[in-house]
C-alpha cells in the first residue's frame, strides 16, 4: 500500500470512529445535561437509568478515536493538544468527572453526584465545542511545532460552534429520551425541543458563515469545484432532514423516531465538515499526508487494530440487544 493510500485509510477510519462517538454518545451527553433542567424527581431517575450499561461502551469510541489519531497522525495529536491546552483541559475534566460521578451516584444514590454528573456532561460538551472551534479556525504552526498563544482558540466562531453543539446535543438527548418506551411526553416537550433545535441551527449556521473570515481555506471550499458541489448537496440533504424533523414535531407524528432524524442531521453535518477540510487535518497548514506516522507504523496498526474495530462494533450491538431500551435493573 502506498503511503498516500494508508494515510487516507486511517483518516477514514478515524472519521468513522469520531462520527460513531458523536452519534452514540451525543445523546447520552444531551441527556446528562437535561438532568440539570428542573423536572419531577421520577423523570430524573428515568434519565439516570437510561445510561445503564451502554454509555461506557459508547465513550470508548472517543478514546479509540483519540488514541488512533495519536498513532496514525502523531503531529496532529501533539500540536492540536498543545495549542488547545485549555479546551482539552475543560473537556478532560468533564469526562473524568462524568465517569466518576456516575459510578458514585450508582453506589451511593446521593443527589450531589447526580447533579455533578449533569455538570460534567455540560463541561464535556463545552470542551468539545471549544476543541472543534479552535481546531477548525486554524492553529498557527512554525517549524512543525505550535507557534501561537494560549487563547488563540477563543474566537467568535468557537463561541457559536460551542453554543450550537450544546443545543444540538440537547436535541439529541431529548429525542433519545422520547425514544424510550417508558418516557412520558410532557405537554410542552415538543415546544422545548423546537426551540432548542432552532437555537442549535442558528448558531451552527452563523458559525459556518463566519468560517471563511477566520480561515481562508473555507472560502475556497465554498467556491471552488468539486468540493463546493458536494457541500451544496450535503447542505440540501440537511435541509430536507430538518424539514422532516420540523414536520414531525409540528404534527406530533412519529415522535419516537425523531431521535433517528436528529442523529442523521449530526451525521450529515459531520460529513460536511470532513469534505470542508480534506485533505487538511490541521487546516489550513498540515495535510493528512504530512502528519502521518511512518508507513510501517500505519501498516502495523492496520493489522493490529483494524480487525478489532468491527468486533467492537458487533459487540456494541450485542450489548445493546441484551439490554434493549430502558436500562437495567441493578
Amino acid at each position: 500500500m502506498t503511503p498516500t493510500l494508508l494515510a487516507q485509510i486511517w483518516f477514514a477510519i478515524i472519521c468513522l470512529e469520531a462520527a460513531l462517538y458523536v452519534v452514540l454518545d451525543g445523546g447520552n451527553l444531551g441527556i446528562g445535561m437535561l438532568s440539570l433542567v428542573p423536572q419531577p424527581e421520577h423523570e430524573r431517575e428515568t434519565i439516570m437509568r437510561a445510561f445503564g450499561p451502554m454509555w461506557d461502551a459508547n465513550e470508548t469510541w472517543l478514546l479509540i478515536a483519540a488514541a488512533t489519531t495519536y498513532g496514525a497522525f502523531p503531529m496532529v495529536y501533539s500540536i492540536a493538544l498543545n495549542a488547545l491546552y485549555i479546551p482539552a483541559f475543560v473537556f478532560g475534566v468533564g469526562l473524568v468527572l462524568r465517569v466518576a460521578s456516575y459510578e458514585f451516584y450508582c453506589s451511593s444514590g446521593q443527589r450531589l453526584w447526580r447533579f455533578l454528573f449533569g455538570v460534567a456532561s455540560l463541561l464535556a460538551v463545552v470542551g468539545q465545542g471549544f476543541l472543534l472551534g479552535g481546531f477548525i479556525s486554524g492553529i498557527s504552526i512554525a517549524n512543525g511545532h505550535f507557534a501561537g498563544g494560549p487563547l488563540d482558540w477563543a474566537t467568535p466562531v468557537t463561541a457559536l460552534f460551542t453554543l450550537g453543539i450544546v443545543f444540538g446535543y440537547l436535541v439529541l438527548g431529548y429525542t433519545r429520551l422520547i425514544n424510550f418506551a417508558s418516557y412520558e411526553l410532557s405537554p410542552n416537550a415538543l415546544l422545548q425541543l423546537s426551540s432548542a433545535t432552532v437555537i442549535a441551527a442558528c448558531a451552527l449556521i452563523a458559525g459556518a458563515l463566519l468560517l471563511p473570515h477566520a480561515n481562508y481555506l473555507y472560502f475556497d471550499r465554498w467556491t471552488v469545484l468539486p468540493s463546493a458541489y458536494i457541500l451544496y448537496v450535503i447542505a440540501a440533504c440537511i435541509a430536507i432532514v430538518c424539514a422532516a424533523f420540523a414536520y414531525n414535531v409540528l404534527t406530533k407524528t412519529h415522535v419516537r423516531e425523531l431521535y433517528y432524524l436528529s442523529m442523521a442531521i449530526f451525521a450529515l453535518g459531520f460529513v460536511g465538515m470532513i469534505v470542508g477540510v480534506y485533505p487538511y487535518i490541521l487546516p489550513p497548514n498540515v495535510t493528512i499526508f504530512e502528519a502521518a506516522s511512518s508507513p510501517a507504523t500505519q501498516v502495523f496498526m492496520l493489522w493490529g487494530i483494524g480487525p478489532i474495530l468491527p468486533i467492537v462494533l458487533v459487540y456494541n450491538y450485542y450489548i445493546r440487544r441484551i439490554f434493549r431500551q430502558d436500562g437495567p435493573e441493578y
Binding site: I64, A67, T68, T69, Y70, G71, A72, M301, I305
Partner: peptide, 13 residues
C-alpha cells in the same frame, strides 16, 4: 509518536 501513539492505540482499542 511513531511508537508511542501506535502502542497507546493498541492499549485503548
Amino acid at each position: 509518536g511513531d511508537f508511542m501513539g501506535n502502542i497507546l492505540g493498541f492499549e485503548t482499542t
